[in-house]
Design a protein around this nucleic acid. Structure first.
Lengths: 143, 143
DNA sequence: CAAAGAGTGCAACTATATTGCAAAAACAAT
DNA sequence: ATTGTTTTTGCAATATAGTTGCACTCTTTG
C-alpha cells in the first residue's frame, strides 16, 4: 500500500491548491519534485509501482486542472507533465518557457530561461498562447 | 475499390520522391492538396472510406519519411500531418513555419508566414529544430 | 468520531498505433 | 503483352494510451 508522504513542501503545495492530502498525490508530487524532466503517465506509473493506473491518470488530470503541473508539448506521441512554478492556478496556466525534447534519450525538459516569443498571427487568427519546442540533444546526451 | 487518381501534380509529387503510383497514395495526396489544415490519421481515414486503416498509417509514415508531408506539432493528443513545401526530402525536413491550433474547432493550420525563431539554448543543449505552436481561435472561429 | 463529500480501485471500453505474413499490384526487362 | 522481381496492400493479432461508471474507502469538517 502507498503511504502518504509527510513532507512540508509537498503538503503545502496540496493545501495551497485546495487538494486533499492523499497517499497517491503526495507520492506523485514527490516524483515530480525529484525529477527535472517532464514525465508521462507511464513513467509516473513505473516509478510508483503500487499505484493504480487509472488513479494516476486522474491525479495528473487533477493536478493540471488545479495548476500544479502543466502539459509539456514535445511533439512525441505521449502527454507529458512538468511542475508549474508559482503563478499557475486553477484558472490559468502561465508557463511561457520553452520545452526541450531530446531526440536521443526522449526526455523533455523545461527551459525556464528560454521564453516563447510574442508573435503576430496573420489575418483573423487570435493567439491565446504560444509554445516553443526545441528538439535536438540535451545536455546529458551531447557530451 | 479505390481508384488511382491520374492528376499530373499528384503523379509528379510521387515520382519526384521515388514512390510508386498506387490508388491509396494518390487518394491520400489528393486529400492533402484539397485541405488547408493538417490532418490526423483518423481524418484521412474518414475522408477515404474504402481505404484500409493500416495502409493509411503506412502511407502517412512513408510520405513523412520521403519528405512529402511533415508532422504538425499542435499539443493535441493526435499526430497530424501537413503537406511539405518544396525543400523537404528523404533526408531532412525543412519546415520552419509555425503551426496554429484552434481551441474551438480543433484544426491545425500551417502559418507559412510565421517563422519559428532562432533560439539559443542554455549550456550544452544542442538545438537541431525549433517548433512554434500558437493556440487560440483560428480565422474561421474568431468571426 | 460520525457524516458528508472527495478520492480510489476495479472492470470494461474506446482510441491510437505497430508488426508479421500472405496475396495483390507496380514496375522493369524482355 | 508476358514474365519475374520487388513493393505495397489487407487482414489478423497485438501493443500502447486514455476514458467512464460504479461501489468502496479515505479525508475532512463540525
Amino acid at each position: 500500500m502507498l503511504q502518504t508522504i509527510n513532507n512540508p513542501p509537498i503538503i503545502e503545495l496540496l493545501e495551497k491548491h485546495g487538494l486533499r492530502k492523499t497517499a497517491i498525490r503526495t507520492q506523485v508530487l514527490h516524483v515530480f519534485l525529484n525529477r527535472r524532466e517532464a514525465l508521462s503517465h507511464a513513467e509516473v506509473e513505473e516509478l510508483l509501482k503500487d499505484a493504480d493506473r487509472i488513479t494516476v491518470y486522474r491525479t495528473l488530470k487533477t493536478f493540471e486542472d488545479k495548476g500544479l503541473i502543466h502539459k509539456a508539448i514535445d511533439g512525441g506521441g505521449k502527454t507529458k507533465y512538468a511542475l508549474c512554478h508559482g503563478g499557475c492556478s486553477e484558472h490559468a496556466h502561465h508557463d511561457h518557457h520553452a520545452h526541450f525534447h531530446c531526440d536521443d534519450c526522449g526526455k523533455t525538459i523545461c527551459l525556464d530561461t528560454v521564453a516563447a516569443p510574442q508573435v503576430q498571427a496573420p489575418g483573423k487568427f487570435r493567439v491565446v498562447a504560444t509554445h516553443l519546442v526545441l528538439t535536438g540533444q540535451c545536455d546529458a546526451c551531447s557530451e
